[in-house]
Design a protein around this nucleic acid. Structure first.
Length: 419
DNA sequence: CGGTTTTGACCCGCGC
DNA sequence: GCGCGGGTCAAAACCG
């Protein structure tokens, strides 16, 4: 019985993987195309190209979809929603997806199992999800309600940046700052001010190990439309997260993904999921990629944004991202003007590792075990999910679709450390 | 003048 | 029950 179950799970995962791989490939192709086009044409072309990519990514994007409703519909149908589901394979290969409270529908795949996303480390994140905000949450909850459950999911992005903030296209207001234990650098708390009751918050902190790394963690869904720049970012993040989700999940132990999937160098370095914290957190580590450094390096004039994410103007649709003042300030981003370099960078990063996809697939398959019936994906997910209403994407079946997410940007991988 | 930042205090959850 | 740590509040200061 268990075997059967496992097999089924495996199948599911495989299909997921497939899909991911596909998406990734597409992405890569599109990126490249975009790059090329761009090289010959101008920004507009780029945009288009990116757009295509964006659509691909969109699937993942859901996770961060700004809109409350949009978010997560992807897998919903499944059934078990309510609380936690987990999917796990073997102790070492474990892929766990825990959907805890944040998303009811997230993963319905295997009953009884959880999908866990791990967190890396901690640096920043930890608590904010406490949902505490007794006052804020309660009083303002209008939107939150919808997110209520999701609110815990967070996405964090680590990027190397000297600038104090990363511009994500949203407007933020700082509402607090605290010294975090174990980190000489203070942690700043920001709230989205683009809309009155927007529940989205973000934490910004420098990595204790490497102050050049900026870790930004986002939580909550925007209850208002986001500027293109923000959207793009969100998408990008989502994509990365998705990728990660699909392949590099960590186990509850909190072991680093890389440990498990050595073959996914970039993947692991780019993103990690963790469930250790109270809320699932997806961490994108932009610092480790081959070009990571370059990507992250903010332009001299731009105080913001070192992230490669910028390259995808439209991808970023998420809730998060955005430095307090710089936010809207980066019109360039919004228009995709800067994209050229961004796209380039991003593309380069991906392109630089042609094996990435393959590696990812291999790793995943390894983890999952030998394929049994591939054709059978009884899942409901598959492609349907991706496109879902356009709204959300289905994030990977096992992946939690965190609606909200928090992203942390850091350039190095402070958190990634295995140990 | 309106909005944002600063900063100390308060609240809450968690571990001992 | 107490202390610790994290997150938020809110008044004052600051800035364009």
């Amino acid at each position: 019985m268990e075997l059967e179950k496992l097999n089924e799970e495996n199948r599911r995962l495989r299909s997921m993987l497939d899909q991911i791989t596909k998406n990734y490939n597409e992405l890569q192709g599109q990126l490249l195309m975009a790059l090329q086009k761009q090289a010959h044409r101008n920004q507009q072309d780029q945009k288009d190209a990116v757009n295509g990519m964006a659509s691909t990514i969109m699937s993942v994007q859901q996770f961060m979809d700004p809109r409350p409703s949009a978010a997560l519909d992807v897998n919903e149908p499944s059934g078990s929603d309510d609380k936690t589901q987990e999917l796990s394979a073997s102790p070492e290969n474990t892929i766990e997806i825990v959907s805890k409270e944040y998303d009811h529908r997230m993963v319905q795949n295997m009953p009884g199992k959880q999908v866990s996303i791990e967190d890396g480390t901690d640096q920043t994140s930890q608590s904010w999800g406490s949902l505490k905000s007794p006052k804020i949450d309660q009083s303002k909850n209008e939107d939150q309600v919808s997110e209520g459950p999701f609110r815990k999911a967070r996405v964090s992005v680590r990027a190397r940046s000297e600038a104090p903030l990363i511009s994500d296209g949203c407007q933020w207001r700082k509402y607090g700052q605290k010294m975090a234990k174990g980190n000489p650098c203070p942690r700043a708390y920001y709230r989205c001010t683009m809309a009155v009751g927007c529940p989205v918050r973000k934490q910004v902190q420098r990595c204790a190990d490497d102050k050049s790394i900026l870790i930004t963690t986002y939580e909550g869904n925007h209850n208002h439309p986001l500027p293109p720049a923000a959207t793009a970012m969100a998408n990008t993040t989502s994509a990365a997260a998705a990728m990660l989700l699909s392949g590099s999940t960590k186990s509850k132990d909190g072991l680093p993904t890389s440990a498990y999937y050595p073959s996914l160098p970039y993947a692991s370095s780019m993103a990690t999921l963790s469930a250790s914290a109270p809320f699932p957190t997806i961490t994108l580590d932009l610092t480790q990629g081959p070009n990571a450094v370059q990507l992250l390096r903010p332009p001299p004039s731009a105080a913001s944004f070192p992230l490669p994410l910028h390259g995808y103007p439209q991808l970023l649709g998420n809730p998060m991202f955005g430095p307090p003042k710089l936010s809207t300030a980066s019109p360039a981003m919004q228009l995709g003007q800067r994209p050229a370099s961004m796209v380039e960078t991003v593309t380069a990063a991906i392109a630089s590792d042609p094996n990435f996809t393959a590696a990812l697939a291999a790793a995943i398959s390894t983890i999952m075990g030998p394929p049994r019936n591939q054709g059978n994906s009884s899942n409901n997910n598959d492609e349907n999910n991706n496109s879902s209403n356009g709204v959300g994407a289905p994030a990977l079946p096992g992946s939690p679709q965190i609606q909200q997410s928090c992203t942390t940007f850091s350039s190095k991988a402070c958190t990634n450390k295995p140990g």
